[in-house]
Design a protein around this nucleic acid. Structure first.
Lengths: 144, 144
DNA sequence: TTTTTTGTAATGTCAATAGTTACAATAAAA
DNA sequence: TTTTATTGTAACTATTGACATTACAAAAAA
């Protein structure tokens, strides 16, 4: 199963906020125009980013002033991922629920796999942690 | 989104085949008893492992003789993962389909994220590649 | 010929993603 | 004060995938 596109949408949103903060009024409608999805999807993702303390979202006609609450160097991709992807028990790999406790393999399959699979998950998360929004922005600045 | 439990079921199956090869008749029914899922699910996963060249599955009354076609040292967890999890375009991270090409961010979001996300995926896959079925079996042998 | 087991199809349930419409609450602007 | 723009949120639909179950023809040994 793939990791949902809401994660890349969130990165797109954060990148666009920083890129256009001085040029345009930043509303969910504006961002929806860049991502090309419905503005409700943008608003829901923005709420998750707000819960993670990354953005400030004024209401009402005040808006157009969505703001990053952290510097791009202070936002890493793992923070974004965790803000967006709600993993059951924080585990990337799902497990079959009822391995047979009367079977030597069924009884121990969690013991022998959990640590290994967690270390795989950690390898991925460490890689995400070492990438910052500022890295993404500096890549972008070379292309615009 | 989590990675489906079919992956851990596949590891359970392979472990059980090697563990019980001299003690029991290995049928999908027997394996279903250890995993505690329906035998059709076992059979479908076995077919995927067969396509990957990992197991041999005799039909009819001959059965009970499902066999590993490789040594446990020659089977790594990435091979199992790839045999079981069909990723679209081989990419772990899904992407929103239509970023706006008229927007500087929308136009470049693939360019600036694809390499990064692939390297994250690769970190995970490399970790899986370095774990062998024989490692899992030796952990198990300490517990039985 | 009988029996066992596989390969496969058909069907059902459940959860998640993704999209859409609608609207009360908010808060600035007129 | 009224108007207007925008958010937060609910309700609904469609589509997909995971997981489960029943059923049975095909295979192949007993």
């Amino acid at each position: 199963m793939q990791i949902s596109s809401r994660f890349t949408i969130a990165l797109h949103i954060l990148t666009a906020i920083e890129t256009f903060k001085d040029e345009y009024r930043l509303t969910s409608e504006f961002l929806a125009g860049s991502v090309q999805v419905n503005s409700v999807i943008i608003r829901n993702i923005l709420l998750q980013l707000k819960s993670a303390g990354m953005v400030q979202i004024p209401r009402g006609r005040a808006s157009g002033s969505i703001v990053l609450l952290k510097k791009p160097e202070e936002i890493n991709l793992l923070d974004v991922y965790k803000a967006i992807e709600p993993l059951e028990h924080d585990t990337l790999f799902a497990f079959h629920k009822n391995p047979n406790p009367k079977c030597p393999v069924g009884k121990n399959v969690h013991n022998i796999l959990d640590d290994r699979l967690l270390s795989v998950q950690k390898a991925m998360e460490d890689k995400l942690k070492n990438m910052k929004l500022s890295d993404v922005l500096s890549d972008l600045s070379k292309l615009i």
